[in-house]
C-alpha cells in the first residue's frame, strides 16, 4: 500500500522486499484478505439467467459457476440512455421489439400472422 502511494506513476514496489505487485489495490494482492474474490461476491450482483428472459440478482450457477464473473465484467456504470423499469425504457422496449413487452406488430410477427395460407382444393 505504501509503495503505490509513494510511486504515483511507477510500479507498486515494496521498498523492503523489492516485490512488485501486479495489482495496486484490493484483495487481489492477497488471497487471505477477503474470503471471496470480488468477482465471486454475487449476492447483490444483477444478472440475466442463462436461458430465457428472467433478470434477477445473486448467485446463478449457469452464470457464475464456471469462473465467477469475469474481472472485465466489473465496470463503472454511467447512464447511457433511458432504461429505468419504473420510467422510460430503452429504445427497443419503447419500440415493442423486446420479448417482455412486444408491440401488437411484434406479437403478430412472432405468431407468423402476417401471412395466411389457404390450401387449394384438389
Amino acid at each position: 500500500m505504501r509503495a503505490q502511494k509513494d510511486n504515483p506513476g511507477g510500479p507498486a514496489q515494496n521498498p523492503a522486499t523489492k516485490y512488485v505487485s501486479l495489482f495496486r489495490h484490493g484483495s487481489h494482492q492477497s488471497g487471505t484478505r477477503a474470503y471471496l474474490r470480488p468477482t465471486q461476491m454475487t449476492d447483490s450482483m444483477t444478472r440475466k439467467a442463462y436461458f430465457g428472459q428472467q433478470i434477477g440478482t445473486g448467485f446463478e450457477a449457469d452464470v457464475h459457476s464456471p469462473s465467477g464473473a469475469p474481472k472485465e465484467g466489473l465496470v463503472k456504470v454511467e447512464k447511457a440512455e433511458d432504461g429505468d423499469p419504473s420510467g422510460r425504457a430503452w429504445r427497443p422496449v419503447e419500440l415493442g421489439l423486446r420479448p417482455e413487452a412486444p408491440s401488437d406488430a411484434m406479437k403478430a410477427y412472432l405468431a407468423g400472422e402476417f401471412v395466411t395460407r389457404t390450401r387449394k382444393e384438389p
Binding site: 429504445r91 427497443p92 419500440l95 421489439l97 423486446r98 420479448p99 406488430a105 411484434m106 403478430a108 410477427y109 412472432l110 400472422e113 402476417f114 401471412v115 395466411t116 395460407r117 389457404t118 390450401r119 387449394k120
Partner: peptide, 26 residues
C-alpha cells in the same frame, strides 16, 4: 425472431404491408 439489422427491418415492413395470403403455392 428478436434480432434485427437495421432495427425492426422486417417487422416494420410486414406491418406496413399488412396481412397477406397465399392460396396454396400461389
Amino acid at each position: 425472431p428478436f434480432g434485427f439489422y437495421p432495427t425492426a427491418w422486417d417487422v416494420n415492413l410486414l406491418e406496413l404491408l399488412g396481412e397477406q395470403e397465399w392460396e396454396g403455392d400461389v
